[in-house]
């Protein structure tokens, strides 16, 4: 088993080396172009499959659903995870610290956190999506409904009929 995974890692390394030199252009919905390494872009499953299908690497990838500010932040994550190694304990710890700081900054700006979450979902960046959704879940955790409404600015719009239904479900169980 150990030899198998070693061979796979070696193959992945070789692939990375081969493709590492290529640069890829991502364009935000405002028309701003971002040039990133292929290793960085491959963090996104959406872009990865387009590249592997022999898509328009030269022409670049327009991303009509992502604005410049969000894209810049998403690329920051992809650069860190795509371009850096994570083999040793130290390297993994460095990445974990990056993630922690990255999400702490986003957490302070909830509206931006949602934008990044949406972009991560659209681009299928699994690690980033898990990170942002966990952050939102952690905010909800342990709060009363009233506290959650206050925290997120949710307007209470349940009708009397809805409330009746909820009560009924409660007693039903």
């Amino acid at each position: 088993m150990a030899t198998g995974s070693g061979a796979a890692a070696a193959a992945a390394d070789a692939e990375e080396k081969e493709s590492g030199s290529r640069m890829i252009t991502l364009t935000s919905n405002e028309g701003k172009a971002f040039v990133v390494t292929e290793a960085s872009a491959r963090q996104s499953a959406t872009i990865r499959s387009m590249v592997d299908d022999g898509g328009c690497v030269d022409k670049g990838f327009p991303l009509p659903n992502v604005d410049s500010k969000t894209l810049a932040r998403v690329i920051q994550y992809c650069d860190e995870h795509g371009n850096k190694e994570a083999h040793t304990v130290d390297e993994r710890a460095a990445l974990a610290k990056f993630d922690k700081d990255f999400i702490a900054e986003l957490d302070a700006d909830k509206a931006f956190l949602y934008d990044v979450t949406m972009a991560a979902n659209y681009l299928h960046i699994q690690g980033l999506f898990a990170l942002t959704t966990q952050c939102i879940a952690d905010t909800i955790k342990g709060k009363t409904p009233e506290e959650i409404r206050t925290a997120f600015g949710i307007e209470y719009d349940l009708t009397a009929q809805d409330e009746e239904e909820i009560k009924e479900e409660d007693t039903h169980a």
Binding site: N29, P64, N65, V66, D67, K69, T70, K110, A111, F112, Y114, D115, T117, M118, N121, Y122, I136, F152, G153, I154, E155
Partner: peptide
């Protein structure tokens, strides 16, 4: 839905962005 969400301004902490997530 993603597009629609983008149309809204991101700067103003719009009322309830959490609920409008897909």
């Amino acid at each position: 839905y993603t597009k629609k969400a983008k149309v809204e301004s991101t700067s103003a902490v719009s009322l309830d962005r959490l609920s409008s997530l897909p």
